[in-house]
Design a protein around this nucleic acid. Structure first.
Length: 590
RNA sequence: GCCGUCCUAGCUCAAUUUGGUAGAGCAAUGGUAUCGUAAACCAUAGGUUAUCGGUUCAAUUCCGAUGGACGGCUCCA
């Protein structure tokens, strides 16, 4: 047998998954003859099909459907392709009483309509499929969900069944194991176990409370990003949590996101809006003085909470919340300075992600205009041309290997987005650099250029870690709770062998470590050594220092790292040197 | 907001199938043991079974509403 290329394997897997969608549809039709079909496409790792059914499905239905599918697989029914005219297709699905299919066909042209038949099931489908229902590898139906017809919330909600499928049982098992592993890393689980954050029914959903340990991590991230940004000329500013609604009417947010604004009012007739973004506030700091071209660029940064009234069904864990801490930065500059500004920002992103060992994992997208619809965008075509080519140059010069995406720019300017792949291979966008021609004009911002004229600056938005909440989700899941030393809430735990005999010595060790600015806890509980080690391990403390008679006598500490080789006994100063280096150079182990 | 599932002690779970008011481990507290690299031993306490209402002689169990969590859909400046 000839070896298949990667592309051929992908194609085969695709055909298999698509065929499984048909097989599942046939199985559902056997169980519910009245079913009306929506669509059944292939997705990452599997497939789904949408059904309009006489009753709601329950999880117990899935094994029954799987069983029916297995029967159909055994029949090895051929997938038969048939080209039909639009009229024939309409007649066929009219007779079959398939309103959703009729809606789809109405939008198709003659000559591009094909049907696929396998066993008793016929579907509007352009293929491709495997030869027969026996060639579909290993699959499992995973869950049921509601889904709007054609993804529009005004339409009827259909019932969707999701399945995963792979070439063979081994691959399927590998995937299911991976999902299990990912669950163990779930930030909600680890957040509770490691005591990083919590929620309260009294405070409300979507409003995370950071515990002392979680707050340490948040503060460390903030210190780190601010230190880097300061080197690139960013100045920290601070703005209040709310403002008059007019501020956001001028920025355009009040109109575009009217339903997502929180209002703050009082009996004294105050009426404010909680800030959903920080850029408008920053524009007003810029606008507080007359600016000269000699002052530019002016760069502001701020890490603060912003508030968005998300739909109730959308909040969950730390990844979607009402109060989100955004690490935001803006540069006001001249058009010709844009390139240098973007280079600086990309370098900030590079430095920050490199320090977490994540730079290599980022994929870069350059999002530019849809050139066929220039009317969709704000700003002059000349400025767009200049800035798009500047962004492209930056990507080139910094060797970012950016993928160009036409039509993905924001309405106010082009941007560079960085995507991170999570434990399950899902892409999440965190860092971004965006040009903005619109906001400065809306707020009538200006500077005096070298010719003495008042002109608007360009605003460059940049997010490095995005929101602290989502960033922590990513970090917790990526590191599975075992954080780099500089970020870890508890870096060292001192464990006396005997809580009576060695307590004083252990205290002096902890004290010395604290003097060197390490986050240290002393376990003075009356537990066995084994138990104390286990507890430190469960809390993912980076280093345990165990001290007993031998250490007291030799004036040493016994070092047990969380992972890796036992480091044995050494002088405390030696240990401090080792971990100070690890902390200060932000070394990532493993 | 919509569709669906779930909610038992601080945590992880049992008892609910077939209605007869709840049990374990860990954690906590008190004691004993002071121990050298992943769980010492004994005891005590901890629950209006998320909340409210209904059916019933009787509801943790069945039904409804509310709240919360989860899986999706939609949305995400």
């Amino acid at each position: 047998m000839s070896k298949l290329t990667k592309e051929q394997k992908e194609e085969q897997l695709h055909a298999m998954r698509h065929s499984l969608a048909h097989i599942m549809a046939e199985a559902v039709q056997e169980m519910f003859p009245e079913v009306q079909f929506g669509i059944g496409p292939v997705i990452d790792n599997g497939f789904y099909y949408d059904f309009d059914l006489p009753r709601t499905l329950v999880p117990e239905d899935l094994p029954l459907i799987e069983k029916k599918m297995a029967e159909i697989v055994k029949q090895k029914n051929r997938f038969e392709r048939q080209e039909v005219s639009k009229k024939e297709a309409l007649q066929f699905f009219q007779k079959a009483k398939e309103p959703y299919k009729l809606e789809l066909i109405a939008e198709l042209e003659d000559g591009e309509i094909t049907l696929f038949r396998s066993g008793k099931f016929v579907d509007l489908c352009k293929g491709p499929h495997v030869e027969n229902t026996g060639q579909v590898g290993a699959f499992k139906l995973t869950h049921i969900a509601g889904a709007y017809w054609r993804g529009d919330e005004k339409n009827k909600m259909l019932q969707r069944i999701y399945g995963v499928a792979f070439a063979d049982k081994k691959e399927l098992k590998k995937y299911l194991n991976m999902v299990e592993e990912a669950k163990k890393r779930d930030h909600r689980k680890l957040g509770k176990e490691l005591d990083l954050f919590c929620f309260s029914d009294l405070v409300g959903p979507g409003l995370p409370l950071y515990t002392p340990r979680g707050t340490i991590m948040k503060d460390e991230l903030q210190k780190h990003i601010e230190n880097i940004c300061r080197k690139y000329g960013f100045q920290k500013v601070s703005a209040p949590a709310f403002a008059k609604e007019e501020l956001f009417q001028i920025s355009g947010h009040a109109q575009k996101f009217a339903d997502e604004l929180f209002h703050v009012s009082s009996k004294k007739k105050h009426d404010f809006v909680l800030k959903p973004v920080q850029c408008p506030h920053h524009t007003q700091i810029y606008a507080s003085k007359i600016r000269s071209y000699k002052d530019l660029p002016i760069r502001y940064m701020e890490s603060d909470k912003q508030y968005r009234a998300e739909k109730t069904g959308e909040v969950g864990g730390l990844s979607r919340v009402y109060a989100i801490t955004i690490e935001d930065g803006h540069s006001f500059c001249q058009v010709e300075q844009v390139k240098d500004e973007v280079v600086g920002m990309v370098n900030i992103i590079k430095e920050f992600y490199t320090s977490l060992g994540l730079w290599r994992t980022l994929k870069v997208y350059l999002s530019v205009r849809d050139y066929e619809h220039p009317e969709k965008y704000i700003g002059t075509p000349e400025d767009w041309d200049t800035c798009e080519s500047m962004l492209a140059d930056v990507c080139e010069e910094l060797n970012l290997q950016a993928e160009r995406q036409e039509g993905e720019a924001a309405l106010y300017g082009p941007k560079i987005d960085f995507m991170f792949r999570d434990a399950l291979g899902k892409e999440i966008q965190i860092p971004t650099v965006q040009l903005d021609f619109a906001t400065p004009k809306r707020f009538n911002l200006k500077y005096i250029n070298s010719e003495g004229n008042e002109v608007p600056p360009v605003m460059v938005h940049r997010a490095v870690l995005g929101s602290y909440e989502r960033f922590l989700v990513m970090l917790i899941e990526h590191f599975a709770g075992i954080f780099p030393l500089w970020l870890a809430p508890e870096q060292v735990r001192v464990i006396p062998v005997s809580a009576e005999k060695h307590l004083e010595y252990a205290k002096s060790i902890a004290e010395e470590l604290r003097k060197n600015n390490f986050r240290v806890e002393l376990d003075d509980s009356a537990e066995s050594v084994g138990k104390k080690i286990r507890n430190a391990d469960l809390m993912k403390v980076n280093y345990m220092i165990i001290v007993g008679d031998k250490d007291v006598e030799a004036d040493t500490v016994s070092v047990r790292p969380l992972r890796g080789e036992d480091m044995g006994a050494m002088k405390l100063q030696k240990f401090i040197e080792i971990i100070a280096k690890e902390r200060d150079e932000k070394i990532i182990k493993n």
